[in-house]
Design a protein around this nucleic acid. Structure first.
Length: 927
RNA sequence: GGGCGAGUAGCUCAGUUGGUUAGAGCGCCUGCCUUACACGCAGGAUGUCGGGGGUUCGAGUCCCUCCUCGCUCACCA
């Protein structure tokens, strides 16, 4: 392959789309994303497994920036471990997303003027399945386009037959262990989705409402004695079965055992005493509505009160099966909020509304449709959580599992300590059907792993429970079900469980993460992962969470198309402070993503320079080069590579706990992705491109030739090779493209792809390296000073600063220049030396070598070592006599104190100066 | 109401265990198409580190307090 052909492959203008195209397929075809069970050490192989299970995106719609961020982070980690030689496995997946998906299909149907009942359950499921196949396929395609290196052979879907088997197994096992039960109680109900919700799915909100004080007439009382009750939800009063006061409340003790008349319904209800009532709040009298309030239900149970239902599932007023007629005809059928207004009106008219005051109170909303949730009495399936929570709590407490950032551990612990039973049944059609069958003849209830067609006791016909399971009841099994559970001895589960990192957003810490940990212990007796990394949320410039419905979202595919997947990834990774939110401007993609694109362009152009100037013939290996061969810039950049590798390792690792559990000192380190990205960026841009590459220009030019030219080619190639490796996890496409074309040494063992090439290894920093760094820093300082003079005096690029100074064309320039150089090293550096190429800085070093950097003046350090040494010698002499004088009591005794003090200060200054000069001589003159 | 987090350059954010002159990217100003790159190069300006108090030789960093924003949990009707 000739140079021109290669250049032909690297057009002057970097085009992300064209560059990225095709690479992904080559990776997949080569099978490098596929993990092999046999290679896992746990299965007799020779590699450490490293496994990440993807938080499965909902199949409801295509990906948004949150997914872009989440999957970029996961891919960075998994690619890093793959390069480190682990058997890296990233399991991709999709979540059927029960309520969310059903809502979408229902909306589609509504647009067609139909309801789900018009279709019937079976047709509805068929239609939803078709929808899911479309969106699911699209999502997986999107993941590929951002470069996600998943093992696609293991793509999981929560509603697939294999995962459904795991769901049933889990349900049956927990039932057998007495951890799943049928409960009759007040749960959160969404009147729009027409299903029950778990506590987590009913989200808190604050609302400004009214606290209504209502007068209940006392029964059997002469006159119009009343009892005032405060409520925020007057519509529920029709379901009141009692009034409650605190047993110690002396104001009401005389009323205990008596009755009140429920307004509107005109029903007698008892006045009871219960500790639950807070005498200090409102009037100290609480209306008890057991069917429509969780607390009231408990009170009602304690007092064996009836539980009349006065609302339909849709949230309209209606008499339940209760014998008493509570909802009058003119209220029946009204929506709950309309009913509230009407009831308040009725009470006002009858004079029973004492007053209404503004009141801020908590209102729960459906997490899927934001409808105000209605507490509702019903029969649901529950998981008893306390026994499951115990090991999950212990795991975080004893360091088996760590959560990053650290502060979430307290949140996690708090939730588990106050865990409540989990309502897992949903009155939906889309999901895993509850694996319970009922026999209508003998009433038997059968919980079964396999479908049941007839009653096993009486042989009678059976019907399956109509409900489906909470979506999270399938996703909480993800780390085990995707690896083949319940087949505990299967190769995948043995090789890859437990997994390593779980990377997700804090929003689903309770929904998903905590429950996965519980499931891990419940079904595998081991934590599912050792690290939980909770990253920030993607927000817009007003710090509002990005969402499609708010119209402030960014489509990751737009970014990929306009800026490239690498730019997208770089942007989110570089912006990923530990646990910090990522702020992006949805109205100005340029502002958010240009830096990533620009960085990719920078890499591209370094690549072009390298291919043009180093050529395509393999360079010498840097390992063959001796110290004698290396110039100062070479030694410097090799040192920089080494320290950057160390920085990256330090920011990323450790990847796993040293001895099974996290030790305190390592527990909260690692996964500092923005630091890793910044270290790699600095190396490429500030070190390689800005300095090292410039120093090679004169050396590898066609005219140069010789050994030094070869050395420069070898070191530059090696430096860029290393940088590409370090950057590959963040920007896989462009680094792979460039790396494939590098003229790496012929002897070098070279992987087929950068994606599986070895991660660079740092060696301990040597004093040699530190010296090179110190020396080169001085060179840089000198060049910068010269540039500053050029800039301050507007010296045109083509003109040599040296010539101007010699000609004394500009006296003030001469002075300024002199001052600057002076500031660098007093008189130790002077302008001069051999005639420079126009616009280049020649820094002549003590050993006779020179560093040439474009855009500067001329600094000759060669002769300055002598001057430096002379100055140092003179200083030593002066210092010697000064110190002697200060130690002479004749002087200190007779001279005024102020003079002695001044001399002391002078000595201090000179000591510092000596130190400074000594360092400089060491750095410049080699000892 | 409880808990947690944040407030550092115009914007988005870094600032490890308190230690020379507080950093980066973007933006801004000046000059440059210097044969890898104008998606670039060189140079430059910009901070009462939210307010107040304290500890210390020394505080962006530790303590107290107040203010302003978030997030999260909560059965006070």
């Amino acid at each position: 392959m000739t140079t021109t052909q290669q250049l032909h492959e690297l057009p002057a203008q970097y085009d992300a789309g064209q560059t990225e195209r095709g690479i992904y397929e080559r990776w997949v075809e080569a099978g490098i994303f596929s993990a092999d069970e046999k290679r896992s050490r746990r299965n007799g192989g020779d590699r450490e497994p490293f496994v990440i299970v993807m938080p499965p995106p909902n199949v409801t719609s295509v990906l948004h920036m949150g997914h872009g961020l989440n999957n970029s982070v996961q891919d960075v980690v998994i690619r890093w471990r793959r390069m480190r030689g682990d058997e890296a496995l990233w399991i991709p997946g999709l979540d059927h997303a029960g309520i969310a998906t059903q809502n979408i299909i229902e909306k589609q149907l509504a647009a067609e003027g139909k309801s789900r009942d018009d279709l019937g359950r079976e047709a509805f499921v068929v239609r939803t399945t078709e929808f899911v196949e479309r969106t699911g396929g699209e999502i997986l395609q999107q993941l590929r386009s951002i470069g996600a290196s998943c093992d696609w052979n293991r793509t999981a879907y929560t509603l697939s037959p294999t995962l459904s088997r795991a769901v049933r197994e889990a349900f049956v096992q927990l039932h057998e262990r007495g951890l799943i039960y049928r409960g009759h109680r007040v749960i959160h109900w969404c009147p729009r989705c027409l299903t029950s919700l778990s506590d987590e799915e009913a989200q808190h909100g604050e609302e400004q409402g009214q606290l209504y004080h209502i007068a209940y007439r006392l029964a059997d009382s002469r006159g119009d004695e009343t009892l005032a009750v405060a409520t925020t939800r007057p519509e529920t009063m029709l379901g009141d079965v009692a009034l409650a006061v605190h047993p110690d409340d002396s104001r009401y003790r005389h009323l205990l055992g008596k009755s009140a008349i429920l307004p509107i319904s005109n029903i007698r209800i008892p006045i009871i005493a219960d500790e639950y009532v807070d005498p200090a709040f409102g009037t100290g009298v609480v209306k008890i509505t057991p069917a429509h309030d969780a607390n009231d239900f408990e009170v009602g149970t304690r007092h064996k009160l009836p539980t009349p239902v006065i609302m339909t599932p849709e949230g309209t007023m209606a008499n339940g099966a209760d014998a008493e007629v509570r909802v009058p005809p003119d209220l029946a059928g009204l929506d709950r909020f309309e009913a509230r207004r009407r009831i308040v009106e009725l009470l006002k008219r009858s004079g029973q509304l004492v007053r209404a005051e503004p009141h801020q109170h908590g209102v729960r909303h459906c997490y899927r449709c934001d409808t105000v949730v209605e507490p509702r009495l019903s029969d649901q399936w529950f998981v008893r959580m306390e026994p499951l929570a115990k090991p999950a709590l212990k795991a975080v407490r004893d360091g088996t599992i760590r959560i990053l950032p650290e502060r979430w551990e307290a949140v996690y612990v708090d939730w588990l300590e106050n865990i409540r039973d989990w309502n897992i049944s949903r009155q939906l059609w889309w999901g895993h059907r509850v694996p319970v069958w009922y026999c209508d003849s003998c009433g038997k209830q059968i919980v079964s792993r396999t479908d049941v067609s007839a009653c096993d006791s009486c042989g009678g016909p059976v019907r399956q429970d109509e409900d489906v399971l909470d979506t999270w009841f399938s996703s909480w099994l993800f780390p085990i079900s995707t690896l083949g559970w319940p087949d505990k001895s299967g190769a995948a589960l043995v090789a890859f469980y437990p997994t390593d990192d779980l990377i997700t957003a804090p929003e689903i810490l309770f929904f998903w993460v905590s429950r996965m940990i519980m499931a891990g212990y419940a079904f595998m007796d081991a934590a599912p992962f050792h690290t939980v990394y909770l990253h920030g949320t993607v927000r817009d410039t007003d710090h509002v969470k990005m969402s499609k419905s708010l119209g402030n979202g960014i489509d990751p595919l737009d970014v990929v198309n306009n800026y490239g997947a690498d730019a997208l990834r770089y942007t989110v990774i570089a912006g990923m402070g530990m646990g910090a939110d990522l702020i992006l401007d949805h109205r100005d993609l340029e502002r958010s993503f240009a830096p990533g694109r620009n960085f990719a362009t920078k890499l591209w152009n370094i690549g072009r320079f390298l291919l043009t100037n180093v050529g395509s013939a393999p360079v010498r290996s840097v390992h063959e080069l001796t110290d004698k061969d290396l110039s100062l810039p070479d030694r410097w950049i090799l040192g920089r590579l080494n320290s950057t590798i160390r920085e990256c390792d330090l920011a990323l690792g450790p990847a796993r706990p040293g001895k099974g559990k996290w030790r305190a000192e390592e527990r909260y380190s690692g996964l500092r992705l923005s630091e890793y990205a910044e270290a790699a960026r600095r190396l490429v841009w500030n070190d390689i491109a800005d300095w090292y590459l410039e120093t090679t220009k004169g050396r590898i030019a066609p005219a140069a030739g010789g050994v030094d030219s070869e050395v420069a080619r070898a070191v530059l190639t090696h430096a860029f090779d290393t940088a590409l490796r370090l950057l590959h996890p963040i920007m896989p496409f462009i680094t792979e493209t460039l790396w494939q074309r590098l003229p790496t040494p012929i002897a070098a063992e070279r992987a087929e792809f950068l994606a599986i090439a070895e991660w660079p290894v740092a060696h301990p920093a040597s004093t040699e390296e530190e010296r090179a760094t110190a020396q080169f820093d001085i060179v840089r300082e000198a060049v910068t000073a010269l540039r500053q003079v050029r800039s301050d005096y507007a010296i045109p690029p083509g003109k040599s600063i040296d010539a101007i100074i010699r000609a004394r064309e500009n006296e003030s320039l001469f002075q300024a220049h002199d001052q600057l150089i002076g500031r660098l090293a007093r008189a130790s550096i002077r302008v001069g030396g051999k005639a420079p190429a126009a616009g280049a800085a020649h820094v002549l070093l003590a050993d006779g070598s020179e560093v040439i950097i474009p855009l500067g003046g001329v600094v000759d350090l060669t002769k300055e070592c002598g001057r430096l040494r002379t100055e140092l010698e003179q200083l030593e002499i002066q210092l010697h006599s000064l110190s002697k004088r200060l130690r002479n009591e004749g002087f200190t005794g007779r001279a005024p104190a102020s003079v002695v003090e001044a001399e002391r200060r002078k000595e201090e200054d000179w000591l510092k100066r000596r130190e400074h000069l000594t360092d400089k001589v060491k750095a410049l003159c080699g000892g």
